[in-house]
Amino acid sequence: MHSYLFHTVWLLPATPTRCWQELVTLGSWEHWWPALAKESWPASPLDTGSELWLGVRSPLGYRLRVQLTVQRIVPESSLSVSGSGDLSGSGDAQFLEINEGNTTDSGPHTELRINWSVQTTKPWMNFLAPLAAPGFRWAHNALMRDGERRFRKWLREHPAASVSS
């Protein structure tokens, strides 16, 4: 298996509560982020031990399936998960309110910090890793940049949570 560490920071034009609601409670991301698909999602709100399956479509054309298990959850603040499937490892997300003076837009803002420490489990990915790892890193970063761009647009165009899961 080949290991990867990813650190992503999104700057979002909404409060941590709103960002949490859209991403975790409502899961509106399936409407604005076409690279991700809910394959299995609990009917009740996420809690420690909740399991969900995500499908991920890479900008390079390959697909991954990942089962996430919630390890720790602090509503409207942070989430830690373990992953299995095509990627094995752990990740966390922190929703931090940032000072209005630190942004170029007025109003409340959130800094969303996303960290992943994963290993690929697909044999072809591990075989190609010595040459393809930079491409896999590029694909992850491109997918996350696209997610941030689309989420910022969604938050601006949908001033109140209006999507049910």
Rank of each mutant, 00 (worst) to 15 (best):
residue 151 F to K: 07
residue 90 S to A: 14
residue 54 L to K: 11
residue 63 R to V: 05
residue 58 S to V: 05
residue 3 S to E: 12
residue 63 R to E: 07
residue 92 D to P: 06
residue 164 S to D: 06
residue 100 E to T: 10
residue 42 P to W: 11
residue 162 S to L: 06
residue 77 S to T: 11
residue 91 G to F: 03
residue 40 S to L: 09
residue 123 P to Q: 10
residue 133 A to Q: 11
residue 71 Q to E: 12
residue 114 I to K: 11
residue 2 H to A: 15
residue 77 S to K: 14
residue 3 S to N: 10
residue 30 E to M: 04
residue 63 R to Q: 11
residue 65 R to E: 03
residue 21 Q to K: 12
residue 78 S to R: 04
residue 9 V to M: 12
residue 48 T to F: 00
residue 37 A to N: 02
residue 108 P to K: 15
residue 4 Y to D: 13
residue 150 R to A: 09
residue 50 S to M: 03
residue 60 L to D: 02
residue 20 W to P: 05
residue 152 R to C: 00
residue 139 A to I: 01
residue 47 D to H: 10
residue 83 G to Y: 00
residue 30 E to F: 00
residue 94 Q to K: 15
residue 45 P to F: 06
residue 131 L to C: 11
residue 59 P to W: 08
residue 55 G to R: 01
residue 78 S to K: 00
residue 6 F to I: 07
residue 6 F to E: 02
residue 97 E to R: 14
residue 51 E to M: 09
residue 22 E to F: 12
residue 32 W to G: 01
residue 82 S to F: 04
residue 126 N to H: 15
residue 49 G to D: 02
residue 54 L to T: 07
residue 149 R to I: 01
residue 140 H to K: 12
residue 2 H to V: 10
residue 92 D to A: 14
residue 10 W to R: 13
residue 68 L to T: 06
residue 13 P to S: 10
